[in-house]
Design a protein around this nucleic acid. Structure first.
Length: 277
RNA sequence: CUAACAUUGAUAGAUUA
């Protein structure tokens, strides 16, 4: 069974999903049941590659054979609906899974909540959070950060801070980055850098996303020195900058007509082994 | 039964008739 599982995983990584699928069916005919992990990777790959019919077919097979069937598998389908903005089907699935004896977990609800926020339905998102606490599902920082990000995107900062208080969540780097990102968009680099320091001082290590957000902020107010500074900090810390990091810098230089600087950042990106997109 | 591994959710840039 382990050998089969590893093979399947490898085929998926090599983008040979169909081979992996066949192999899994072969396992079943030998009465070897693939684990939940294997089913998950396979379904994830199928849904990602828009081979949705195969995915459903495989799901049925999973149910019939009594293979590892749990909430994480359903969550993949939920995620698929939500990334297609098909909230109605997602909600239907949430309801139906209960009837199959699988109760949605915080991950399932977070997928849905996140999708609500993306469509500016914050009230609904928050009300689900409250309902969950009422039925004894504990709210984690991921679910809250999803809503906070939604609030930050539209500048509802008070609501964002409030939510943290209400659910007694201390900010992690995702939450900090959402907040900082708002300040950067507003060109308020004083607030942004204060937040950034607060984050570092509370023992969290900012990642490439956080630094990139700061770079975007400094670029926005035309402070290329500080932007450059932040980039230097990233490299010094041994964090890998991304294509996005450099794109922001190059874009900013181009806009201000400083082609020399733009060229410099572009070359630097290549040196880091990053391919422009 | 235990352990290990694998699997599902949140954050940054650019594209607009």
């Amino acid at each position: 069974a382990t050998a089969y599982s590893m093979l399947v995983q490898c085929y998926i990584q090599e983008n040979m999903v169909n081979v992996a699928l066949k192999l899994t069916y072969q396992m079943k005919s030998l009465d070897i049941l693939p684990s939940v992990g294997v089913c998950n990777s396979l379904l994830g790959a199928l849904l990602c590659g828009e081979q949705i019919d195969y995915a459903w077919e495989f799901l049925e097979e999973i149910q019939c054979r009594g293979m590892g069937f749990d909430v994480s598998i359903i969550n993949l389908f939920l995620q698929k609906y939500c990334s297609d903005s098909n909230l109605r089907s997602a909600w239907k699935l949430l309801m139906e899974m209960k009837q199959c004896g699988i109760s949605p977990d915080i991950v399932a609800y977070t997928i849905f909540i996140n999708s609500l926020c993306k469509q500016s339905l914050w009230r609904e998102a928050v009300s689900i959070l409250f309902k969950l606490t009422a039925v004894g599902i504990s709210i984690d920082s991921v679910s809250v950060s999803s809503v906070i990000n939604g609030f930050c995107k539209v500048g509802k900062m008070e609501e964002a801070f409030n939510l943290m208080k209400v659910f007694n969540i201390s900010p992690n780097i995702y939450i900090y980055n959402s907040l900082i990102s708002r300040f950067c968009s507003d060109g308020n680099m004083i607030a942004a850098s204060n937040m950034f320091h607060e984050m570092s001082e509370s023992g969290l290590s900012p990642d490439c996303f956080c630094f990139t957000t700061m770079i975007r902020g400094y670029c926005k107010i035309g402070d290329m020195n500080m932007a450059h500074n932040v980039l230097a900090k990233i490299l010094k810390r041994g964090i890998k900058p991304s294509v996005v990091t450099y794109t922001i810098l190059v874009d900013c230089c181009c806009e201000s007509g400083d082609m020399e600087m733009a060229e410099y950042f572009f070359q630097d990106m290549m040196k880091e082994g990053l391919a422009p997109d």
